[in-house]
Design a protein around this nucleic acid. Structure first.
Lengths: 218, 218
DNA sequence: CGATACTGACCGGACGGTCGGTCGGCTTTC
DNA sequence: GAAAGCCGACCGACCGTCCGGTCAGTATCG
């Protein structure tokens, strides 16, 4: 189960979140991930938590206010997580690998929150906490672009369009939410690592060294 | 506007679909793509078509029966479309490029149907015409894997795991639905083409020839 | 005692879906 | 050729259900 307390904001007084609130977040984001925001009713959440719907409203003023911290916390935390592991002085290809592997690690650890958060983004383009959330998302994407640009500047990465290349890289991570099976043979980090190999070296076999030699492995 | 008549099944008598039915499909899939299946009511669809809700039910027995042919038609048609352009005797790297570019072309032409269809798949994993639809989806993915495997067998593609590589390739196409702007500077086909460059050659600049030389260009 | 956790009953409204019926155009019949 | 029969397109009104959300009240606890 995702340890959501790590990625959720503290309450107004700065105290850690109460158990019941964390439970509601956990239940809600698991349900949102499976059935989508509109497919989950407040009754469902309350029942799954073993409390009445009125009690749910005792803790949350509305349905949106359950989703918003989830989406916000996830979007903000993945940036902070990846940034924490990024060493701007390291070789760009190493930074790129760290970016991918740590994004995958975050995805695996907070899988339900990630999925709930991305479907939320998708299902409702109008009002749900867009601005601040998009700002964090942009920082995340910008970090990737910075890495790519650094690689281009150093002559270690060759792309025509850094923005397009950034979307190319993010596609592979973002789409994992649709098919990744935690019980499958590979961990998310292993998938991120292999994706990085393909991103950096390509899958073509034209005259070039074997993938292992092209970039540092851990 | 998507020309949905191309990808939708004919009626029971084999006649082309009536204008009103096509209109309903077009309106519905545009709305589904924007707000999600659950975010669109039958009233919305009827109002957008300029008819009453009762008339809508005159043509369709239920809400699901609007979505199902859309999702089915899209999933089936993209396979048929890509297969039509695939030449199994061509070099695998050329076939891969055709696969990507034609997938992108299909996406651009039937953008709303594609998006509506993929959100539908997502929002409800239970009953909505799963079996047959998944069968077409599998054929589409299998065609890509066949291309990759052919490349591996000929020594023109180097991957550890064809299935994982297939997901890698599909990620880039599937995620386009989330960011592609038809009014942007690139056509979908151009994006697919550039993605193919990155997939085949990688973005690393390690000692290897320039992308243009590594694979045939049209 | 007051504050907090909690509840069942309830509300207005939107949902998917149904029903009885109107209307204009096309056949059929004499 | 016109009356009769028919049919598909269409509509307003309505149904039961479930939604998000509210509220008065109770149990518990420091």
């Amino acid at each position: 189960m995702d340890d959501l307390a790590e990625i959720l904001e503290l309450d107004d007084a700065g105290n850690p979140l109460q158990g019941r609130i964390v439970q509601i977040f956990q239940v809600a984001c698991r349900l949102f991930a499976h059935r989508g925001f509109d497919g989950v009713s407040m009754r469902d959440i309350a029942a799954e938590c073993g409390i009445s719907k009125a009690t749910l409203y005792h803790y949350f003023p509305g349905k949106d206010s359950i989703l918003r911290p989830l989406a916000m916390g996830t979007t903000k935390s993945i940036f902070l997580h990846v940034q924490k592991y990024d060493d701007p002085t390291a070789p760009p290809l190493v930074r790129l690998r760290v970016f991918l592997v740590e994004s995958a690690n975050f995805f695996e650890k907070f899988r339900w929150a990630w999925i709930a958060s991305s479907t939320a983004f998708w299902s409702d383009p109008k009002v749900r906490a867009r601005k601040e959330r998009i700002a964090w998302r942009d920082k995340y994407e910008q970090l990737l672009r910075d890495i790519l640009q650094a690689g281009v500047d150093r002559g270690e990465i060759r792309v025509d369009d850094v923005r397009l290349a950034g979307r190319f890289v993010l596609s592979t991570i973002n789409w994992m939410a649709r098919w990744f099976d935690p019980d499958g043979p590979l961990t998310a980090a292993q998938v991120g690592d292999q994706f990085c190999n393909m991103i950096v070296n390509g899958i073509g076999a034209a005259q070039r060294p074997a993938p292992k030699e092209a970039v540092a492995q851990d």
